[in-house]
Every structure is written in C-alpha cells, then in structure tokens.
C-alpha cells in the first residue's frame, strides 16, 4: 500500500491516473412527476450530467426536497428517468442491475428475521450455496461488529445497530456500486461519526464506488473524494468540490483547516438554495 506516503500533490495525480475510469454515467437525466392535485407535470430532477469514477466516494448534498432521493431511485434502477439515460459499467440500466447495493434512510431490517438471517437474506434468494453464505455472513458479522447479536431480532437492537444490519446485508452481496440514502439520518451525532469511520473502512476494503446522499455537510466533507451540491427543485448540480483527502483517512480530518474550508464552501453554495426553499414555503 502506497497511500500512506502520498502528499497532496501526489494525491491529485493518483486520482488522475488510477481512478478516472467511468463507472456510472448519467447523461441528460431528468425525472418529472404528475401533481396529484392539478395533474400537471413538474420537474423533480435534472437534466443531470454526472460521471462517477470507479472506486470513488461521492457525496450529494442539497436542500430538502431537491430530488436527492429521486436521484438515488434513478441511479439504482428502482425508477426510470423521464428522459436521458443511466449507464452502469457500460450498459444502460432499465431495472436494478447486478452489482448495485442500496442502503435506505429508513430502517429496512426485516423484523421477522434474526440478524444473521437478515444478512443472509439476499444471498439465499440469489442461490449462493450454503457454505459460501455462511462464510460471507460470518465475515460481515465480524466486520460490522454484530457477532454478539447474530441470533437477536432487530427489535432488540438500537437504531444504529439495525442500520449496521442493513449495511451488512448490502455488503455480503459484494456490490461494486453502493448507494446510500442518508443512512445515518436517524442516528445521533456521535454514532454518525463512528459509523462514518466504518463506512470509510468498508469502502477501502471493498474497492466499491460509493454514492452517499446526506443532509449533513460535515459528513459529506469528511467522507468524500468529491461532493456534489444540488440546487433546489428541479435538482441540478451547481458545484462539485474535490476534497483531496487521502484514501486512508478517518474522522480525524475534521480537525484540519482544509475541512473547515470545504465546509464553508459547501455551506456558501447551499445557504442560497436553502433560503430559496424556505422562501417558497411562505
């Protein structure tokens, strides 16, 4: 591993040489909805052009209701774009493609299954053989610190632990692209910071591309290689911020001056957008 030796300048070079292979490409993607009351169409998203590079950690921040979740639905193949197309590994996607994992904001653990069965759920349905399921689940239980709770039901766990179960359930499928929609939204600040570290560890270990949607600017600034700032509806990217962190980073970057600069730049852009949203409500 050479990451630890890298300084700022070399870091930029690494990004340029190693990681600028497109993994996900959105071209002119829009999504519109029909309003229930008036039945007229309104644009929720786009048009968006965005390329996620292979192995990149990309975060999306934006004012509430800007279409962040719509973006994720379109990226994961849960929803089709109204126009434009999403390419994943060189193919246009029309439904959820193989190799994509999703972690939702809400608690998506199944209350009728134990932690172990929750984690094994996707593997068993996709026909992975028994010993391999065992092996991967055991690894995920250890990795997410859930080993002592393997036989427990989600109702017996805290919110943070349940979200770990959901992350582990995604992890065992060995996704090459992990989409996360405010996965720590319901957790307290301390737990969020620690979960952030675990997320970085998971990202390094799996070499997956991660797209994280969050409303917490500090979370985005601390975790990401790049942060996309979205405008209020219809959601468009109005700024892309390169953080320049080393791959081998953790939550301690919050004490660096660079972190403050990134945070300030994000808030500067977002403040205007948030005021637009609040103004629109009055």
């Amino acid at each position: 591993m050479t990451f630890a030796l890298k300084g700022g300048a070399v870091e930029t070079l690494r990004v340029a040489v190693e990681s600028r292979t497109p993994h996900v490409t959105l071209s002119q993607v829009t999504r519109s909805f029909k309003k229930a009351s008036t039945r007229e169409m309104f644009a929720a998203l786009g048009p968006i052009d965005l390329t996620l590079n292979k192995g990149e950690f990309f975060s999306v921040v934006g004012p509430s209701g800007c279409g962040k979740s719509t973006l994720m639905d379109v990226l994961s193949g849960l929803a089709r774009p109204t126009s434009g197309q999403v390419m994943f590994e060189g193919k246009v996607i029309s439904s959820v493609p193989d190799g994509v994992g999703v972690v939702f904001q809400e608690d998506a653990s199944f209350p009728w299954l134990t932690v172990r069965d929750n984690i094994a759920f996707g593997l068993r349905r996709s026909g992975v053989d028994g010993p391999e399921v065992e092996r991967r689940v055991a690894y995920a239980l250890g990795f997410m610190g859930l080993r002592d709770f393997a036989g427990a039901y989600p109702a017996q766990l805290s919110g943070g632990m349940r979200q770990r179960v959901c992350i582990a359930r995604t992890l065992v499928m060995q996704p090459r692209l992990i989409l996360m929609d405010e996965p720590f939204g319901a957790l307290d600040q301390q737990t969020r910071l620690l979960m952030g570290d675990e997320l970085l560890r998971l990202w390094r270990e799996t070499n997956a591309t991660v797209l994280l949607i969050t409303h917490a600017l500090d979370e985005a600034a601390m975790l990401s290689d790049r942060v996309g700032v979205m405008s209020s509806r219809p959601g468009l990217f109005i700024d892309l911020v390169e953080t320049g962190w080393e791959r081998d980073r953790d939550s301690r970057v919050v004490s660096t001056p660079r972190f403050g600069e990134i945070n300030a730049r994000l808030w500067d852009k977002l403040r205007v957008e948030t005021m637009k949203v609040m103004g629109a409500q009055h």
């Binding site: 193989d98 939702f104 759920f121």
Partner: peptide
C-alpha cells in the same frame, strides 16, 4: 422500504411474495 429492499436485492415477484410480503 421492504419492497424497495426486495427490489434492490433483485428478488423475483414470487420471492418477494413469499419472503418479504407474507412474512411482513
């Protein structure tokens, strides 16, 4: 979110019925 999860895990409709919908 249960059915969305079933979708992202690429379950078939029959699998979703017997492994997600009915247990839920």
């Amino acid at each position: 979110v249960y059915l969305r999860t079933a979708g992202t895990l690429r379950l078939t409709p029959v699998q979703s019925l017997f492994h997600v919908l009915l247990p839920a």
